[in-house]
Measured scan of single mutants.
Amino acid sequence: SPEEIKAKALDLLNKKLHRANKFGQDQADIDSLQRQINRVEKFGVDLNSKLAEELGLV
């Protein structure tokens, strides 16, 4: 269901964000992850996106 997909995506992105902060990645990478999280919260996951591929939806 779209809600489950959204939850999985947010979980994955939050893990990536945590790792980025923990290991001191570029601020641009961290900002990009934050924008992705905001986009998923607002609009859900686009099944044509790279994120959908990472989640194994495509």
Rank of each mutant, 00 (worst) to 15 (best):
S1N: 11
P2D: 13
E3S: 08
E3A: 11
E4L: 09
I5A: 06
K6G: 02
K6E: 03
K6H: 04
A7E: 09
A7I: 12
K8F: 06
K8N: 04
K8E: 04
A9R: 01
L10C: 02
L10F: 02
L10T: 01
L10P: 00
L10I: 09
D11L: 10
L12C: 08
L12E: 04
L12H: 08
L12F: 12
L12M: 11
L12A: 05
L13P: 00
L13R: 00
N14M: 12
N14H: 15
N14I: 13
K15H: 08
K15G: 07
K16G: 02
K16L: 14
K16E: 04
K16C: 10
L17K: 03
L17C: 03
L17I: 06
L17G: 00
H18V: 14
H18E: 15
H18S: 12
H18W: 11
H18I: 14
H18G: 07
N21V: 15
K22S: 10
K22D: 06
F23Y: 14
F23G: 08
F23Q: 12
G24A: 07
G24D: 06
G24P: 09
D26W: 06
D26N: 14
D26F: 07
Q27C: 08
Q27L: 09
Q27G: 07
Q27R: 10
A28L: 08
A28Q: 13
D29H: 14
I30W: 03
I30R: 06
D31R: 08
D31V: 08
D31Y: 04
S32Y: 15
L33V: 06
Q34F: 07
R35V: 11
Q36Y: 08
Q36V: 07
I37H: 02
I37E: 01
N38P: 00
N38K: 14
R39H: 15
V40N: 00
V40I: 10
E41M: 11
E41G: 05
E41C: 10
E41P: 00
K42M: 12
F43D: 07
F43E: 08
G44H: 01
G44C: 01
V45K: 00
V45Y: 02
V45A: 01
L47T: 06
L47V: 07
N48L: 07
N48H: 11
N48I: 04
S49P: 02
S49T: 06
S49Y: 02
K50N: 08
K50A: 13
L51N: 02
A52W: 11
E53R: 12
E53S: 10
E53T: 09
E53N: 07
E54L: 09
E54P: 00
G56P: 01
L57K: 03
L57T: 03
L57I: 11
V58M: 11
V58R: 10
V58I: 13
